[in-house]
Design a protein around this nucleic acid. Structure first.
Lengths: 343, 343
DNA sequence: AATTATTTCCAAAGCGCTTTGGAAGATCCA
DNA sequence: TGGATCTTCCAAAGCGCTTTGGAAATAATT
């Protein structure tokens, strides 16, 4: 069923039917209702390509994910984030195109094609690095975009929504300090990732403010896998002066850390404290009566929702200033922390 | 830059340029090269909507994910699966549309719209239940589709790619039995999920073949979260006759189970054995020298790749029989299993 | 009643591409 | 050289929609 057929069925012109469906005021209510009813009954919906061609709008947002770096891709956070944005898209009639860039292929080429083919109206930039080239590139290319996170070294204005990673890790470190911990290890994400960069800043700034020397030998960065948490923690525990607390970049890493602690016969929350950042992934409810981990919490799913709302606003009003939004975290106390062991 | 401009630039007709780019034989090699070069230089690519409108092809595959059931959605497996299919799509010039259905909205309506708007050429059905209504629905609707998994109770033929969940759990249970375990608990996924159904069949069939009575009081089904693994295991350990081994549906659940075991002061692999299914998620390398968990392994990412290939074949040849492919798992021995403790 | 405003509708152009049906130019054979 | 056969190219139609510029019908005003 296409517009022509529907309009013939109704004995109306295509124009009138189109206007009726698209809510134009110059159609009488009676006609509009008649049209809408017929459309529903005949399961009519405007052909996407034709509409897109006529309006110049794709009603589609692009998400580009490069697999070149294996682990970054299959970020466990990805599913929840996508769920968040996707909900908002679909409520507003937008579709999401997910483009996976296989190893060895050029992510920028995908954006160029998006532009040339007008496949998308806008783009979401995920997992920005400290000095992410995509921001400048997209700016020049002229595709509207918003960044989930920030790029510290990027000077030109751009739209972003981020978690306050710095303050989160200041608070986490302060908290451990208050419990008497003086030797606190950091298992961070990869160094060039902006969020990791900011968390490290927070961690260091808290230590410094308490007069504690920063010790690079107990600070690590890597992809946030379980085995990373396990191995580094195992090594840390073998040191002659092991840390009494560990700050971890994600629950997955924290699980690995706990595994190492337990294998050593030690108890998390007594012998060793762990504080982690928690993205509130739906398959890791860290929220029993007393949650498993003390954590800086921030729902990545809600972040996705909010980010999508901002992006749709930008599309609706291309002249608006690029919005920036900083989400604060909650620090919630769980079983994984306790006073530093006296010795 | 559009086709008209490009052809004027080259002093050719639009037809010739289009044919040159689309590889038609009636264009001389010299002309073709000239055209291709100019296209690249001017960053020309055919407008997606226009092309789609003219050809009737969307070059797009739809993935629909319902959030109605919170946990199903943010399946941790999702990211890796999508990475697999996405790679293949992009190598073949296809795009992937991801449609998130917010709670309370109708998943079937999304398919109807896909059809009416011709947004997609085909659809991938994920996480099928035992008697999944989508199969019959899509059949009637007339959208080509392939299922990741199967629907046991569905009789009509349809395309699918699945892991041999039954044999995987037969082998896992057999293995535990060989180690002397006689009381083996099952922490399965949700009952109506087809994969869980088949795993339970495998588990029960192995037990029966060894003359062991099936005990529903140590069999559970639920969303596969960490806390599910933790809580059920904690309960199991408090039984007067606790199991000596636990079979687990995913690594996440296994991690929860291990947490409970360790909190009880017991050792995994000695006091309690754990075997899990492992989808080879990229952030859970369960493969050190001796992997953390004994597991039935099968890469969900590779499954995605293969599934995408099959689907693209179906699109290319609409008359082909619906392909069916059953992937076998590896059973790899890790640290989490050992002989049943004698008492 | 005549004029003006308002409502309700339509014919046709155009979005950028693919593809059909032919025409022009080059090549070949007798 | 003339006619037949390829090779190489093009003009124009059509995909299904939105939207412009007006026309017809109705209501309001003078």
């Amino acid at each position: 069923m296409n517009l022509k057929e529907l309009s013939e069925l109704l004995n109306l012109s295509q124009t009138t039917v189109s206007r009726a469906l698209n809510g134009f005021p110059e159609v009488s209510e009676r006609t509009r209702e008649r049209v809408q009813k017929a459309a529903k009954q005949n399961n009519y919906a405007p052909n996407k390509a034709a509409r897109g061609l006529a309006t110049g709008q794709a009603l589609t947002i692009g998400h580009v994910i490069s697999t070149t770096n294996q682990n970054e891709m299959v970020n466990p956070v990805f599913g929840d984030f996508v769920a968040g944005v996707g909900e908002v898209y679909s409520k507003n009639g937008y579709k999401m195109i997910l483009s996976i860039v296989p190893p060895g292929e050029d992510e920028y080429q995908v954006y160029r094609e998006f532009k040339a083919q007008s496949t998308v109206d806008a783009v979401v930039v995920q997992s920005p690095s400290v000095n992410d080239g995509r921001i400048e590139f997209l700016n020049k290319l002229g595709i509207p975009f918003i960044v989930h996170g920030r790029a510290s070294e990027c000077t030109l204005p751009y739209a972003w929504l981020d978690v306050n990673n710095r303050s989160a890790f200041v608070r986490a470190t302060d908290f451990l300090h208050d419990l008497g911990h003086r030797r606190i290890a950091l298992l961070n994400g990869r160094k060039h990732m902006d969020f990791a960069h900011r968390r490290q800043q927070g961690y260091e700034s808290s230590l410094s403010s308490h007069g504690i020397e920063i010790d690079p030998s107990i600070m690590f960065s890597s992809d946030m896998t379980e085995s990373y948490g396990y191995q580094r923690t195992a090594e840390l525990l073998k040191l002659s002066n092991p840390p009494t607390a560990i700050l971890t970049a994600s629950i997955i890493v924290a699980l690995g850390a706990r595994r190492a602690v337990q294998e050593e016969g030690l108890t998390v929350g007594q012998d060793i404290s762990i504080v982690t950042h928690d993205d509130r992934l739906s398959y890791f409810h860290n929220s029993a009566d007393v949650p498993m981990f003390t954590a800086t919490k921030s729902s990545v799913r809600e972040a996705g929702q909010r980010l999508a709302e901002l992006l749709l606003q930008m599309i609706a009003d291309p002249l608006m200033e690029p919005p920036n939004e900083l989400l604060e975290v909650e620090l919630t106390i769980g079983q994984s922390t306790g006073p530093a062991p006296s010795r």
